[in-house]
Amino acid sequence: MPWPRIQFHELGDQPWCPAWLHHHEQFSLSQLWALRVPLWSRSSLATAACTVLKEHFTDLSSYTIVDVCAGAGGPTPLIERELNRDAEKQDQEPVTFVLTDMFPPVDVWSAIAKKQPNVRFIEEAVDARSVGRVAADDKKECRVFNICFHHFDDRDAAGILRGAVAEADAIFEITARQVSTCLYSPLVFFWGFYVTLLWYWNSPVHLLFTFLLPIAPVALWVDGFISCLRTRTPGEIEDLLATSGKDLDGWTFSSGQRSVQWPFITLYYFVGRKGAK
């Protein structure tokens, strides 16, 4: 990369950030995972993530997939729906997903789990740096960090990886720090208007701070740009793994990318598997 990683902090993570703005950002990013433009998109981000998972984990039904920084759910419900739709068509056992977070929004997760029985959650606060094994004894465990790993500084990130290597059987992270992602980041500014118009059209606060004072779109743009600056490359993740103090014998790591909406949206990923050939 032409610049070093910078541990900036997002506006949406600040204690003074209004709850409505934090929710708007989280919801906007979640909906971006489902975006599919007819005659242009090869797929959605969620579909691309499912494809990568199926390519690297041919025995997905033997895993429990744990989202260790789930927030309001993020893309996990979308990924679960697509993966298990395919599993049902192939008469395979469904994949169980588990949501955890340091600040669990239990009401939001309960609504998700009610609609999607293969999604469950842990009500208590779970520190991503010290997640015990979640999967049952007869299941393997995959830890996913759906574009949240970059929120942690190197010390905490190394601790998260240390726990994943010690307790889980697989790691799946979506990552990128490219010049192109920074150049395209202003596009999320306009996405902020679309989200408000479609989903918050009856909220005076959202309408005011989107169309008259465009605070919501600007915050989405700024935080998206910050994410581009602090996301880790596959090499940097491997360096953290090497300094985690854990034995990596038997682990196989790989990374790659998949175009979703050329040239603006590309899925970058990092996968680790224990016992992979």
Rank of each mutant, 00 (worst) to 15 (best):
V37C: 10
P18L: 04
F8L: 15
S28M: 07
F57W: 02
H9P: 02
D59L: 05
H23R: 12
P38I: 12
T47K: 15
S41C: 11
L53E: 02
E10Y: 03
S28G: 04
A70H: 03
L11T: 06
W33Y: 15
Q31K: 15
V37D: 08
F8C: 09
L21C: 05
D59A: 09
H23Y: 11
E55W: 08
S30H: 13
Q7N: 14
L60F: 06
V66T: 14
C50E: 02
L60S: 03
I6E: 10
A48K: 06
Y63A: 06
F57G: 02
W3K: 06
L35S: 07
L60R: 02
S28H: 06
Q14H: 10
D13Q: 03
E55Q: 15
V68Q: 07
D59V: 08
H23A: 13
P15C: 01
A34C: 09
Q31D: 11
H9R: 15
W20P: 02
A49K: 03
A19F: 07
W20Y: 13
L11M: 10
Q26H: 09
H22R: 15
I6V: 14
E10N: 01
W3G: 00
I6P: 00
V52N: 05
L11Y: 08
V68R: 07
T64R: 08
T58I: 11
C69P: 01
C50M: 01
F57V: 01
S61Q: 12
L39D: 12
H22C: 02
T58N: 11
S62L: 09
Q7H: 14
E10H: 03
L53M: 11
A49Q: 13
S41I: 06
R42G: 14
F27E: 14
H24D: 12
D13G: 04
L35P: 03
Q26R: 09
A49L: 13
L60D: 00
W40M: 12
W16Y: 09
W3V: 01
E25P: 00
T64F: 04
L32Y: 07
S43D: 14
L35K: 13
A70M: 07
P15I: 01
T64W: 01
T47V: 15
T47Y: 15
C69I: 02
Q14C: 06
T47E: 15
L35A: 13
C50T: 04
C69H: 00
C17M: 00
V66Y: 08
R42N: 13
T64Q: 12
E55H: 11
F27D: 14
E25A: 14
V52T: 10
Q7R: 12
L32D: 05
L11G: 02
H24L: 13
S61A: 12
R5S: 00
V52L: 11
A46K: 04
I6K: 11
L45I: 11
L45W: 05
S30V: 09
R42A: 09
D67H: 09
D59R: 05
D67S: 12
F27M: 14
W33G: 05
L35Y: 08
S61N: 06
L32K: 00
D59K: 03
R36L: 14
C50K: 01
A70W: 06
E25H: 12
H22G: 09
A19I: 10
A49C: 14
T47H: 15
W20V: 09
S28T: 12
H24M: 11
L39T: 13
L32F: 10
D59P: 03
I6Q: 11
Y63H: 06
W16F: 12
A19C: 06
A19K: 13
T64V: 12
